[in-house]
Amino acid sequence: MGFQQPVTNMTDSKYKIAGFGALILLLAVSPLFLNAYWVDVLNSVGLYALLALSLNVILGDAGLYNMGHAAFFAVGAYAAAYLNTQCGLPILWALPVSGILAGLFGLLLARPVIHLRGDYLLIVTVGVGEIVRIALINNLFGITGGPNGIFGIARPELFGFRIRRPLEFFYLIWGFVAVTVFLFARLKNSRFGRALDCLREDPIAAEGSGINTGRYQLLAFMLGAAWAGMAGCLYATKMTIISPESFSFWESVLIFIIVILGGAGNISGVILGTFLIIGLPELFRGFASARMWVFGLAMMIMMVFRTEGILPHRPRLFKGLDRLLP
């Protein structure tokens, strides 16, 4: 990795911030002039953005190949659905619980396999995704409802107000996305984030610099799993019915595609990727049965033209570097 001319100077970053602000504002007011269908598409994008951001911690930041992310999504969704329908726990209280359960599940699972190299870890996570799905279909412990899934999940209530319409869900979901982006961006600039950067680029150098690689990888895995679990809780309350087919291998693949195509390790890239991957098939509805064909083609074209993702991860530069370089 050569030295790059630092791209940020004061005016540039000002424009950048203004641009981001405008985009966020546009997104925030967009449901007011979109119809219910497009608002719901944005809700879908928001949920997948959460999933993709959570996978990004594992795949983009820690560099661990995980193609079974739907498993953690499922654990969170089913935990929330079960606690809500069987124990009467309000859905927003179930949110942290489903996160914790999914995180613990991730930890338990990752502990013995985290040392596997790239593609071997990939197939193990694929396997875990499938095992979870099969367990759900076969009504494990009699609590998952088998192929029918769980239905009658309550809508969330906030200070006595019941969130029901797509517009209301929009602010709940995207509010959670905003919190997530804020937290994950902070995390990236923390000791934890720097450690992950280092161990992804060169695990041996990281080990040599005194970073406990195994521990950091496990932490990243657990954090990603927990966040996917919370996305599952939101998904459950939005759909009010969940069934195993919503957590198939294809879902894991989709989230994986979003992260890589958007730009692994780059939060804005991942969100842009979500808009493309979840939004495009909706725009392609006019193609009827050719819609997935066009989608596959678009995916190849985008990848070939932007080989490192749409917004690639830029290596961190030491802030004082521009003073040192001529």
Binding site: Y37, D40, V41, S44, M239, S243, E245, S246
Partner: peptide, 8 residues
């Protein structure tokens, strides 16, 4: 043939 696509 999938619930999420159907809701959209």
């Amino acid at each position: 043939g999938d619930p999420r696509t159907a809701s959209l």
